[in-house]
Design a protein around this nucleic acid. Structure first.
Lengths: 344, 344
DNA sequence: TTATAAATGAGGTACGTACCTAAATATACC
DNA sequence: GGTATATTTAGGTACGTACCTCATTTATAA
């Protein structure tokens, strides 16, 4: 049987009250006595029964996900995932909620984050582009004793204690390697499409992608990034242009949203399958494009995993408990048509 | 605040004891009363506080992993993973243990499984080749009220309630697609190496692999499977033979163990990198071969995930609680050099 | 030595659920 | 109507921990 506080009391030959004082770092214990208790704890291998402790404390974990207010498929599925896990989490004394902010306005993020501050809030998972404003707002939250985690997008220079997401440079490298190896001729042009080249995520992915293509596939040329800004027409036009300017276009690397526009464009092309497409993020649309062999590979991160991981990390943070780093590592998933249905 | 049993008692205007009987399905409640209670439960959205319940019951989960007694790197890492999670699991009232049986002897598996039967055992995760013997032994366990799960290798015709592992046909297809696309010329021979062609896992992987190669890459030919039986020398000799018989050998598909022998062979070849290698299972050795670009891709399953999943599933099974199917889905992971370090 | 402060002990209640007993009430049967 | 039986109530204890009060012991300073 697991040792309990009473066992420690016996072994350390002190009272239960003293053990309690030591464990919960309450004042009024001499160093010598505390030492005795700690020795007993070590000797017996005592580990506090967290669920009993939470029961006694009536502990509730309140965790907020702060997400941008756009209507992309990715965010829709992510929201579903959070809501879905929220139901399960309730039975683990954890209340999840979602707060949205206008994606385009860094100042709105600040006021949104500030409005969250309240005593019973334990942690916030923030998905937002890193800006000086986000940095300050995060700092403010931390000063109020609220734990924060960067969610999906990293917040490089801020005080967040954790980043829950993939390494985007490595993701770009992975995409680059797949692109290079998937092109039999290994020469020609590659178009790159991003939502905005200003975001760190896109920059990092592009950096990783170029790194691999330049060093390992010297006969492939990566064209300048096409910025979509959520505009399908623009993607359509740019691709049309690119294709007429570069008849040797061999691949398309889709770094963010816009997968729908890209596949629509390619479906209407005469020779489908000639152009290799590597895309990011698995959504209903990219799934069906994979099935139809229009997209050749998708680089993604498991949405269920990042949501659960964020919750676990923030909870551990507010209990000052260690996390299992290996479990919290977010993997860069490669999805082909062949491992799609079994994986998602 | 979450509703408690007392809240239900109040709303249903019955006593706590009656609520308790309904919730725990104890006898002595009329249908009408039970209905009242269930209505109140639904109305208030009551969910049993599992940790409080476990505390009250003094519930301990005892789970055994039954593993073959070979000394492969894969099993070594798997064992570490189980031990590692076992430490964490202890604080969730879950005791993990590992029992080994001689891999080659189906009868030993039976007696090993039989010897496990005891009252306080909740579940067994079994990694073993499916045989008539394993089927009967599993049946025996189930009859003793012990829950079982097939672990890594499926037990197709047996009564196990869950299979914790990947779909090996899909894994083979994934390997086939990668192999085909990784070979620029898309013609030539592919060697396949397995430990034993008798195992379901190898058969299924081979089936998936052939399916893709035959339909999508008609100019590639998959050679008969080389059976290694854990013998490095045999792999070495067979590969040497194959290479001299087929100068157009373009790829090697390693379906199980033997990665070490394969990479050793290729390292000593004159033109490394000419032959694409797709292998299964990530181990210390295949990791370093990926880094050195001797292996091009590894198909694997996350060891931490399968271990945790097995425990969750068996625990849910013995609590008769629903599982989150999405979380328990074991993904077919594709690992390249580029996403290796961030993923594992 | 005594006054005072600090440390410790002993005991209680609470969290939400499980499970037990004894007594009270309702229902069915003759 | 009375009796047997089934159902329900009321109350308790327990799990392991947190947190509270009050009494008592021990150490420290005057």
């Amino acid at each position: 049987m697991r040792p309990t506080t009473s066992d420690i009391a016996k072994v350390a030959s002190v009272s239960l009250a003293t053990v309690d004082r030591v464990i919960n770092e309450r004042p009024g214990v001499t160093k010598r006595t505390a030492q005795k208790v700690n020795n007993a704890i070590r000797e017996l291998g005592y580990v506090r029964d967290v669920s009993a402790a939470n029961l006694a404390k009536g502990r509730q974990y309140n965790i907020v996900f702060v997400l941008p207010d756009d209507s992309s498929e990715f965010l829709k599925e992510l929201t579903l995932e959070i809501e879905n896990y929220g139901a399960t989490a309730k039975s683990e004394r954890t209340n999840l909620s979602i707060v949205r902010f206008p994606a385009t306005d860094a100042h709105q993020l600040v006021s949104t984050l500030r409005s969250l501050i309240r005593d019973d809030l334990d942690g916030v998972a923030i998905m937002a582009q890193a800006t000086p404003q986000s940095r300050d707002a995060i700092s403010e939250l931390m000063n109020s004793g609220i734990h924060t985690a960067a969610f999906i997008s990293d917040q490089p220079d801020s005080e967040v204690s954790h980043f829950i997401g993939i390494d985007n440079v490595a993701a770009g490298r992975t995409a680059g390697k797949l692109m290079g190896r998937f092109l039999p001729s290994r020469e020609g042009k590659i178009a790159v499409i991003a939502n905005s080249i200003l975001s760190y995520d896109s920059l990092n992915r592009r950096r990783g992608f170029d790194e691999i293509i330049n060093t390992e596939f010297p006969n492939l040329t990566v064209l300048p990034t096409i910025e979509a800004h959520g505009n399908s027409q623009r993607i359509h036009d740019s691709l049309k242009n690119t294709l007429s300017n570069y008849p040797d276009l061999r691949g398309i690397y889709s770094m963010g949203s816009g997968n729908r526009a890209i596949t629509e464009f390619l479906t209407n092309q005469n020779e489908p399958g000639e152009i290799a497409v590597i895309a990011h993020e698995l959504t209903e649309h990219s799934r069906s494009a994979l099935r139809n062999q229009i997209i050749d590979a998708v680089i993604t991160q498991n949405k269920g995993h990042i949501v659960r991981s964020a919750v676990r990390v923030l909870r551990a943070e507010s209990d000052q408990v260690a996390i299992d780093k290996r479990q919290e590592k977010i993997r860069i998933d490669i999805v082909l048509k062949e491992n799609l249905s079994t994986n998602y």
